[in-house]
Design a protein around this nucleic acid. Sequence first.
DNA 1: CTGAAAGCGCTAACAG
DNA 2: CTGTTAGCGCTTTCAG
Lengths: 343, 343
Amino acid sequence: MARIDRTADNVTIIDVAREAGVSYATVSRVINNKAHVKPAKREAVLSAMSRLGYVVNQQARSLAGGHSGVIGLLVQNLGTSWVGTIMRGVDEELDTLGYDMMLYTTHRAKSHEAAHVAAITRGVADGLLLILPRDTGSYLDSLRRRQFPYVVIDPQEIDETTPAVGVTNREGAQSATRYLIDLGHRRIGFITGNLELVSARDRLAAYRATLAEYGIPLRPELIAEGDFLQKRGFHAAQELLDLPERPTAIFASNDDTAFGVIEAARDRGLRIPEDLSVVGFDDIPEAANVHPPLTTVRQPLDQMGRAGARMLLHAIEHPEIEMRSTILPTELIIRSSCQPLPT
Amino acid sequence: MARIDRTADNVTIIDVAREAGVSYATVSRVINNKAHVKPAKREAVLSAMSRLGYVVNQQARSLAGGHSGVIGLLVQNLGTSWVGTIMRGVDEELDTLGYDMMLYTTHRAKSHEAAHVAAITRGVADGLLLILPRDTGSYLDSLRRRQFPYVVIDPQEIDETTPAVGVTNREGAQSATRYLIDLGHRRIGFITGNLELVSARDRLAAYRATLAEYGIPLRPELIAEGDFLQKRGFHAAQELLDLPERPTAIFASNDDTAFGVIEAARDRGLRIPEDLSVVGFDDIPEAANVHPPLTTVRQPLDQMGRAGARMLLHAIEHPEIEMRSTILPTELIIRSSCQPLPT
DNA sequence: CTGAAAGCGCTAACAG
DNA sequence: CTGTTAGCGCTTTCAG
């Protein structure tokens, strides 16, 4: 009844070799599914492994030159639905392929990015997934040169040389703006995202272009600056609603901002959609739960995560193949926060 | 103009030693802030390090017996606000102490838990944080025996020997029930959580006990079974609202369930809180955003994460000190989803 | 097919 | 104070 808990302690490849009566190189071969091992020995090793409860030590494996089986994920912040949903996609895809995830958060401190990237690429991970990185200039070149596999999700520069997955921001913003116009709205307010980001600039540009396309004069006072956060959306909406000629509809650059708009409207006793139509962007899970359910431009967040993970794993396993970036489609999801302008 | 990009490649401790003109043991000492290094040499090493762009290889460090500087985090699923918020707390705390995070998801497959735990404890991490684990029986003993530092957040068994951080589920549910009773409600519906979890059972028990305490007879038909998810909450609420004697208030075992209640009420044209009062539990970020803003029992989610991380890091750095579990208080957050029962 | 042996980059005694 | 050296557990030649 002694040593029952053999599984608990550090059984190494050497213990397994001894137990199976082979050299430990052979054990390594079995573990890594290499050819050239006689079936009988393979069996012996396998059974010894399970008998002893052997688990590989990834560190050692990766140090010795094997792959680590983990990918690094770099994000700014946790806890928003937006990244949460993307991460879920990444995780699901990783899970099916047996990779683990090492998570790094930058907390918007640009300086952290480069440091984390350096740490990640120095061993810990086989590849790197970057979600909306901010300061890629300082390290992407280096990754590329060293042929370290990486993929950017929601990139800032979409040059063809960067392996990335993005979405059709312009088309999405266009369809939302058109929808509002088709509903009869002409005074359509717009709240921007954080204009440092191309996604924000693209959405704004599409809003402008679409108005122009319909011959609707652009009224600068109808554009308020936001930052993709609810609070700022709230204040921006207040500005818009204070205008002498109040907009009849507001297109917010993302859902969180739209929630701020809803809040501001409610504050003033305006009903949505009767008194004000609202459209968001992203379609985070909450969008369907607010009241009224928010009409919004869906980004396929989980698909973005999945696609990014898939591309990365592919790159890891086929380093020779050149990667191209992927652009996923957006889609207008019509719920109940808009209505035709009464004539 | 040649070798500009020295930072890019694998500069090791040996390169640094050569550059600084010392032995590589000395470099190791400097890196690890050990005493007994002459200031001048320390300087030389430091400058060589930055000149070469040296970054430690965690794998090697940890293999060689040092600490890895990473903790493992085991969760069931990503992408819910509940874990998202806890993770954010964990991350923030880890960040201030310079630890990294390795993320493992079990996807509710109990079998994954043990496997992941085994992998984590075989090198990768210095400690393990488990959020709402399901099948701890198979490995917690082993961790304990091997003195591998771990902390459970929202544990199932709260015996004193498990280092854990939990919340006052009973008190929280009690205060919610009391609040409803004080508002004059007597027919108070209750939707349970997943009753496999103690948190769900505790909340139910407190609901019952509080009714009893006020001498309100327990009506079994007022208790519907849920699973902590919105969909099931929706259906459970339908059952409750179909009762011949409809409840005037519903206490849902968590916010997601409460959202389902709100949905069901709206479906039937019932106004909240005029026709039905609703209370949730958790206070996830969305709770403040639904309409009407949800009155709910707050769990300090980010604090739970922070506390767990802090305890774990403490345990890692002071293995000799015995850990005790922490119970964080819940708090009733009164918003607008309840009103007094008109008499 | 299989064993022996050389490291991967670093920490931690152990001697100076 | 500082250098030398022995591994950590594993992958990978290189010889059989």
